[in-house]
Design a protein around this nucleic acid. Structure first.
Lengths: 209, 209, 209, 209
DNA sequence: AATGAATGAGAGTTCATTCAT
DNA sequence: TATGAATGAACTCTCATTCAT
């Protein structure tokens, strides 16, 4: 299902406020983004103050507002980037998939390693709904799109049964998120092979014709 | 899997601060809880202020602290109650289930109608992790327990294949939450029959021996 | 011209935020208003901070916002009250005027003694245009109304020549303000008899038929 | 009274910080002054930020401080220039005046056309008192001086009655400002002929012997 | 001469909580 | 039991000014 994942869709993250004009500026901007990612991810959006971010980034408070018009703006930017990178990584991972089954497994595995890598930031996704509801829906719809395309193709080719691809997509995202939450976010370890295998066998029976 | 859901487990909600002694007091306390449920659910924990709650409840600011020691405390209480009621409703729904399949479907359906009923409050669950991480894990572990018991029984009886019940439990919860999010919370309507059927057919193939 | 000054017009100053419910609250509110009058009047709107006001009023910062929704709001309230009191004082002063000439002189004198009394606050009027342009025009239009009515009556009765009353009203207000500025605000003393007499003789020749 | 208006008085505007040495520098300086005039005039001193000015002038923030030591300094410079130009225009206008009456009318008319031309900037005068009280008094005293000289001459020659020239000067300035405010600043049009005529007839009766 | 990044003090405002009645 | 006034720390954001290039 991950196969036709949109790799080339253009949801470029826009820098609304400031495209740093010097390399020094660009470095500062990046420091702020990194700091924001870490602290937002650790404490959540509402428990994070702009001061926290600037302290972590080792710049003055005012500097923050040179690069971002508001606290919510960095947050949105991070979520958009998260969405972008996640989908890119998945679509790249699927390139080399030989069989369907392999593709499915690769998709799950990539997702798990992604949230392991971006553990902190990933927790934020669930908080987005309280910060910016539209962005929240956007995130999941975007993610679902990739699944849906892959599912449609598999159904068209006859490999998968005919089921409503959107419903299946949300079910699959749910499985991925919950296994990721339970083993990656809580246990801070890789999702065990067994979990992956179990999930695969669970779904495949239902999908493969 | 919902079958042996613990209906009698004792996670009694404790009122740390105040067990209202008069009926007038009890009424006030309930007004505050109702107001909190509505506003927390609508705006989220961090966007809600204690004043909001007292205004909605039509009492003075100070009254809040007669019944609850802090803002976070009401929140925790609501989540605990949510957890309690949800699990109770599910276990009750499963009582009359004849076959396994029916039990599964009933479990899903009950969950969906529950979050439809408590739409606002339910969104909160995702915010819990940023308010009280332990409570967050407690919530899902508790919910998972019910699933696990049911699954173990079904596996023991030979109806379900032998799979790790915890893994399957989290997968099932993920499916339920995501379909609920997509069709109940976003669409504000019942999860369509089709979604339920799709989910069932998807899973059952993988589960039933 | 001051004669028919509207004494009964109802431009009651509304307390938008808070009608203090206890006498203690009312006292605090008044302390804040007094402090605001003094400090705004001394340093101007923009040079005054809310902290300045609360320090002067000997209350905590937050207390300010119990009684006023914002800094600009107290300011507006003060200006409205200023307008109200000024016009009331003038109209009351004119009650006992026997002749026209006396009425004119009384009007000027009352105005001068008013701005002497409210020296600080009065300077604010000129700053209003940068804070709330509409309020600024409202203030002068309201003041002009009183003049206009008196002038119209005097013209109708034949005592004054027929001139455009609005033009004359603004001319008279200009004279009053500038003499007040020069001798009351700058010199911090009464406008000398001489100035009053000079102004009167200057105008009367032009007005009296 | 406008007649002997000091055209040659030396209140040269000093650039404390920087007398631009190159023509390029001079151009930049002028761009900043123009931008400051426009923005100060539109939004007032306190609502204007240095950044606003530099953006309007299309230069970098730092550039501002090459030419002006501080925000307040440009403001003062603009007010001084305003004072200078206003008085120069009036005195030039009076050169060709044949009779007294004509001179008076010309003075008023010039003032009105001046504030129409410099509408935005002129509003600033009223804000000066909160920015730099001394400058404020200086402005009006300087303006009054011109009036006073003219009045004294007219009184000496016997055309005008003997009245305190300073008092009359402030009265005249008051009339001019208020008619200007009401019809030029608020209505954004010329002071109507009628207003001018009314003002003239009002005053002349009182002045002419 | 000019740029634009950086600073940090201070602004207005909110709000969980406590206190006095 | 209930009220509503009071607190003060913390928050987001602005801005005059300085610095490095």
């Amino acid at each position: 299902m991950f196969m036709n994942f949109d790799s080339q869709s253009k949801d470029e993250v826009q820098t609304l406020k400031h495209q740093a004009k010097t390399s020094r500026g660009e470095a500062t901007r990046q420091k702020l983004l990194d700091a924001a990612e870490e602290i937002f991810g650790t404490k959540g959006y509402f428990n994070t103050s702009v001061v926290d971010i600037t302290i972590k980034a080792e710049v003055a408070q005012g500097t923050f507002y040179i690069y971002f018009p508001s606290k919510i703006n960095v947050f949105q930017e991070l979520i958009k980037e998260l969405s972008h990178v996640l989908r890119k990584e998945i679509s790249q991972a699927l390139v080399g998939a030989g069989s369907r089954r392999e593709a499915e497994a690769l998709g799950f595995a990539t997702f798990f390693s992604f949230i392991k890598e971006h553990r902190n930031l990933y927790r934020l996704v669930m908080e987005v709904q309280f910060v910016d509801e539209e962005l929240y829906k956007w995130y999941y719809r975007r993610l679902a799109e990739g699944y849906i395309k892959g599912l449609e193709a598999a159904m068209a080719s006859g490999e998968f049964r005919d089921l409503d691809p959107e419903i299946v997509a949300y079910a699959l995202m749910g499985i991925a998120e919950f296994l990721g939450m339970r083993w990656v976010l809580w246990e801070k370890e890789d999702v065990p092979e067994k979990a992956l295998a179990t999930a695969m066998s669970l779904i495949m029976e239902g999908l493969i014709r």
